[in-house]
Nucleic acid binder design. Sequence first.
DNA 1: GTAACTGCAAAATATTTGCATCCTT
DNA 2: AAGGATGCAAATATTTTGCAGTTAC
Lengths: 138, 138
Amino acid sequence: MEMDIREILKKNQLSVTASREKILQLFIDHNGALAHGDIEKKAGEKFDRVTVYRTLQTFVDKGIIHSIPTADNSVRYALCKDNCEEGHHHDQHVHFVCNSCNNTYCLDNVVTPDIRLPKGYSSKHIEVVVEGVCVNCK
Amino acid sequence: MEMDIREILKKNQLSVTASREKILQLFIDHNGALAHGDIEKKAGEKFDRVTVYRTLQTFVDKGIIHSIPTADNSVRYALCKDNCEEGHHHDQHVHFVCNSCNNTYCLDNVVTPDIRLPKGYSSKHIEVVVEGVCVNCK
DNA sequence: GTAACTGCAAAATATTTGCATCCTT
DNA sequence: AAGGATGCAAATATTTTGCAGTTAC
């Protein structure tokens, strides 16, 4: 899998560094979304907090990960699968937050529905976050 | 309108104070969502920052306002119209963020769609945020 | 070798808590 | 009068910035 990670970084014109490899690995290993704090912990106290901030920002800029809106104001990030596979940004899937295990998942197979807006409004992007109980907690 | 504001506060078993009246008035006057910082500014430097935090928290607890999830990690709040009118919490409307004027609106007439989830997932609440250009900016 | 990345320190910003005082009921 | 709300100070937490040293290419 290490090959893939380097590939992803190179494809996005990023130099391959230890922190980027490890943080990206965390996202690939973890089937769900990660908050900044999760990464600091999971990485085993290895990275400077600033490096994590900057790496996440870089990944978002390049479209490797995307941020997920949450009502409680915690920012979480998840892999952009489409991007990783095809190199351009699509993010038309539903996000799911489990009230039991508190994980956030990207439901890549659930496409965001069309929304009929009032006259005069035009839509560029639709974000859907479903809250409930996930398959592992039911 | 002042009567209404006092009514809302009393209905929620909150004592009527100057800051609560003014902050609630801001929400009623402003047809959109407000962030903590907006309130500090709009109120004309009148309230202690801590009071604003506590007032917002109180209003959320009572269901007078609700927080709106945003991807950029800014917390915004808007009136819960259903609550104000009927005293119980419904929040099944779509939120709209304008990329031009940067306002956030509650589209009270646009109901959140049903989402077909994968087997094993159950839904308790659905949040939809549409991003685009609003009727005032088109 | 050069440009880019990291880590430390520190600044700037945001949020929470304790407590004495003041206001609402 | 009593309980709750406010405002100030200060403690925490979060995020950003500058810069010198290090690493990738």
